[in-house]
């Protein structure tokens, strides 16, 4: 086995690298979305890859793989996502990008009634090597229609898988796994993580979809983080350590399937749990984790399960309101103190 060379890489570049390496490995992979290259059809005028994607996650791909495989689309999410699903059903692996997850409304049917159900309702007849790239998260002043974190909507639907990488390492590994999966996978990128860097292997690797990971060992309470909230949990854990509370931090990484067993194993050690989720609270992934842990591990709990989530409101615009909306380490610390009855 060759030694694994790692280097610091940003979340955005890790996504780009996973796409690039897998497209090189598998000549089938066809990518489509709005402005994923930019200046579509203008190569003859010298305009190529004008945007490289709205967040530059797909930059360079059209130059390496050409316009047959990297397809800018009109603003027709229902059509191009449905097209990507249909091509996958016909055996060509596809990746479609939904620019912001908030735009799900215009193409929801294709994901709900086709991508999620075709394998089951067709009795296993049809498989879908299909990945949807999309992005979530408040914090960039984009207000109510470009900021939401509604992965819980999709986690609710049988037949889909959904991953929520929290750093560059998990972004590359989970996207590589998605691009090799024969189930439809939604890859939720958090907009505030694009510039965050960590050590990432140069070569290709997969992280299993559905496995959570422990980021910090602890004995007193389990903090479960999802996407960007994992770093909030780690920050809170440091603050709690100063108060003598030794928190364990679990990074969920997948909103469907949810790694309940990993969470329950942690609770059997710590006997307490707070779930930190940027999504709105009603019928959320955090609510589901709380319910399942309550059902399966009640005897291991020494205190009520608590959640720190966004309020049940749209995402506001004004900076102070937006900051108040997003769960932060102070809210987590305060909630942990409540769990400990102080």
């Amino acid at each position: 086995m060759t030694s694994k060379t790692t280097r610091m890489l940003s979340y955005r570049d890790a996504i780009n690298e996973a796409l690039q390496q897998e497209m090189e490995r598998n000549p089938d992979i066809t990518l489509m979305g709005e402005d994923i290259a930019g200046a579509a059809g203008r190569a003859d005028q010298g305009f190529v890859d004008a945007w490289g994607g709205p967040f530059r996650t797909t930059q360079g791909l059209i130059q390496q793989f050409g316009e047959e495989r990297v397809r800018d689309t009109p603003i027709s999410e229902a059509a191009f996502i449905g097209t990507a699903i249909g091509a996958a059903a016909a055996g060509v692996r596809t990746v479609a990008e939904l620019m912001y997850f908030d735009f799900i409304g215009v193409c929801f049917d294709q994901l709900l009634n086709n991508a999620a159900k075709m394998h089951y309702m067709y009795g296993g007849n049809v498989t879908l090597p299909f990945t949807l790239l999309t992005r979530i998260g408040a914090g960039v002043g984009s207000a109510a229609q470009h900021s939401e974190t509604l992965y819980s909507l999709m986690a609710h639907i049988p037949g889909l898988k959904g991953v929520v990488p929290s750093d560059a390492y998990t972004a590359k590994g989970l996207l590589t796994a998605a691009l090799r999966s024969n189930d439809p996978v939604i890859f939720f990128e958090h907009k505030l993580l694009y510039h965050e860097q960590c050590e990432v292997p140069e070569e290709s690797y997969e992280l299993p979809i559905g496995d959570a990971r422990t980021m910090r060992e602890g004995t007193d309470i389990t903090l479960v983080g999802i996407s960007k909230m994992t770093s909030v949990c780690l920050e809170a854990a440091e603050l709690l350590a100063a108060e003598g509370i030794n928190a364990e931090v679990v990074d969920l990484l997948s909103v469907f399937p949810i790694d309940y067993d990993h969470i329950i194993a942690s609770i059997q050690k710590t006997h307490r749990m707070v779930v930190v989720d940027e999504d709105t609270p009603t019928c959320s992934v955090a609510a589901d984790i709380a319910a399942t842990v309550g059902e399966e591990a009640f005897d291991s709990l020494d205190a009520p399960i608590m959640r720190v989530q966004a309020p049940h409101t749209p995402v506001p615009y004004a900076r102070d309101l937006e900051l108040a909306y997003i769960p932060d380490a102070q809210r987590v610390v305060k909630t942990v103190r409540e769990v400990f009855g102080s």
Partner: peptide, 27 residues
């Protein structure tokens, strides 16, 4: 549905299967 016959499936949502055929054409 019967993929071995190129039959990608009957679909209960009106209009929903149309992009799937476009996708098969793209394939």
């Amino acid at each position: 549905a019967d993929i071995s016959k190129g039959m990608l499936g009957a679909n209960g949502v009106v209009g929903s299967s149309v992009p799937l055929a476009v996708g098969a054409a793209l394939a």
